[in-house]
Amino acid sequence: MISVQQLPSLERYAYDMAHLIGAVILMMSFGLLYQRRMTAVIRTYSFQAMVLALAAAWQAFVQEAPHLYVSALIALLFKGVAVPFALDWLVRRLGIHRTVETALGIGPTMIAGVALVALSIVLVLPVTASAAAMTRENLALAMSVVLLGLLMMITRRNAVTQVVGFMSLENGLILAAVGAKGMPLVVEISVAFSVLVAMALFGIFFFRIRERFDSLDVAYLETFRGERR
């Protein structure tokens, strides 16, 4: 197996490359916040997952940890292909509105997102002062992705976009996990499977809501529970 040590010319790019990939993932998170069309949201998510797979592969290469290649493969197949495909199918099958319904406008959401990224950088960099540079930057980026995923969940009305927010949040977690040395593969696999289970549950959930209310706007759930009349 090839490793960085055998290709010394690549060694000095190890940090830059990891940083670049992480930044692309973060950009994709912003992209998720920015998209106004459902299909574009799913595509962006798919792209983010693929970049995540690339990040895992790069870390596997740099850290000489072959089990991370497995992680990369899981990310690529499950998150990059299977989940977007399933979501796409759901959207088409259920005939959902193709536009994203927002609770907070796109502009303010972007501003809040930038503030969250700033917060996580301010937070993470001093805490991890003693850690290796690669871990530090990676951790800040991963935390930003997590927070942006959460932000997406609360600023979108449609259940599908909320699920995409949740999946993107989980991408952030994986990004943090692959950056840290010595994270066992079992953890990642179990996280990946739990996400898959969650996906299945959400799918069933969508069908049920849809059957009942002819819409996936979660506001109908509130009416159903009797809080909004």
């Binding site: 969250l116 001093p126 609360i154 009305r157 979660v218 759930l221 509130e222």
Partner: peptide
């Protein structure tokens, strides 16, 4: 007990951000 799903998420999110801010300021 009777908030909407989004409100619950919002509360969790705001609590998280607030705690993170506290950590950031105390550093």
């Amino acid at each position: 007990q009777f908030l909407t799903v989004r409100r619950y998420l919002l509360m969790m999110f705001l609590t998280l951000v607030l705690l993170l801010l506290v950590v950031a300021v105390r550093q």
